[in-house]
Amino acid sequence: MNTNRNRMSGIRFTLVVALVFLGCFTAHKSNAQDGEQLFQQCKACHTIGQGKLLGPDLLDVSKRRDKVWLKNFIKSSQTMIKAGDAEAVALFEEFNKLPMMDYNLSDPELEAIIKYIDSFSKADSEGEEVSATTSDSLAAVEAVNYLASIDTEENRKKGKELFEGKRKFNNGGASCISCHHVNTSDAVQGGLLAKDLTKSFSRNGGLSGIKGIIEFPPFPAMKDAYQHAALTEDESMKLQVFLMHADEENAVSESSISELIKQGLLGVLILLVIISLVWFKRKKRSVNYQIIKRQRR
């Protein structure tokens, strides 16, 4: 009897160990898959080893930042910036003060994202780490080549038609002009529900930034609008070209703005001097006073 009990206990123990092992394996596999899926919402602003977009390249980010810091930053970067965290403030300044969205993620989800990013890292001993400078240079060359291949008048025209809704998106998405406006010489007045996109090309880091936002929308309203009506790669490309030309058409250098301000201030100063001179020669007493004064004489 005791032998049977011991045998049953052994079998139960073995089953428990097997289930725990299977659970850990499944959880690990699920974590990796979840991390890749969760990272899709980061692709508009970040790459892993492909260079900077709207935000920094995240390759080896765990070697540069503490895990607790990373989790807090992902949850709410603005909270850290307002609290005066030096590293968070430096990143905010470096990337044109473009605020990163807050992500209400659980701790396991944050762990999954960080593990997914870390899976691209090279071991130090291998000596195969890609430097940030090298990846940025490669990204810059690719951007130049990509631009040369797509920058045509036909693509600009079709991009404008897609933006204004004169040409429909293949998957039935709403036209950009429903919410946004772009100021060009032949522009149609756009919506005011979202940000003016006239200078979006330079504001968001060029082609890579625009492409990331279009193909992986980081903004909740835009994400919901195109969740089941994603733009094709060809549509994205034509919109990129249109927005690039709109930006160039409205380009005003900082030196020109400064010169305009200086000339305006000089004009105001001259006007004030003229007004002062005229006011100084004004009549100080009434006409009746002068008549009475003559009569008294």
Rank of each mutant, 00 (worst) to 15 (best):
Q78S: 11
G173S: 03
I114P: 00
S253G: 15
S121I: 02
Y103F: 14
G51P: 00
G190W: 00
A140N: 12
A83K: 11
H245K: 13
I81S: 00
K262Y: 06
D151M: 07
K293D: 13
S125N: 15
L15D: 10
A90P: 00
E93I: 08
E36Y: 04
Y116E: 00
L58Q: 04
S256P: 01
T232G: 08
A221G: 12
G55Q: 07
K262H: 08
G205E: 08
S286K: 14
I213A: 11
A132W: 06
A187W: 01
A90W: 07
L162S: 00
L15P: 00
G127W: 04
V273P: 06
S208F: 09
A187N: 07
T14S: 15
T26V: 14
M222R: 02
K211I: 04
G23Y: 09
K43G: 05
H181N: 15
Q41M: 14
V273S: 13
M1I: 09
K97A: 07
S258G: 06
F169N: 01
L91W: 01
S175N: 04
D107G: 10
L138W: 06
D136I: 03
L110R: 03
H181K: 05
E128F: 13
K199L: 14
L59Q: 06
D118G: 06
Q41E: 14
V141L: 08
I270P: 11
D247C: 08
G159P: 00
L266C: 06
G212L: 08
A143W: 03
V182C: 02
R294K: 15
I150G: 02
F92R: 00
S137K: 08
Q78H: 07
V287G: 09
R5C: 05
S149E: 13
F25R: 12
S135K: 06
M237D: 05
R12M: 15
E87S: 08
L197N: 02
Q37W: 10
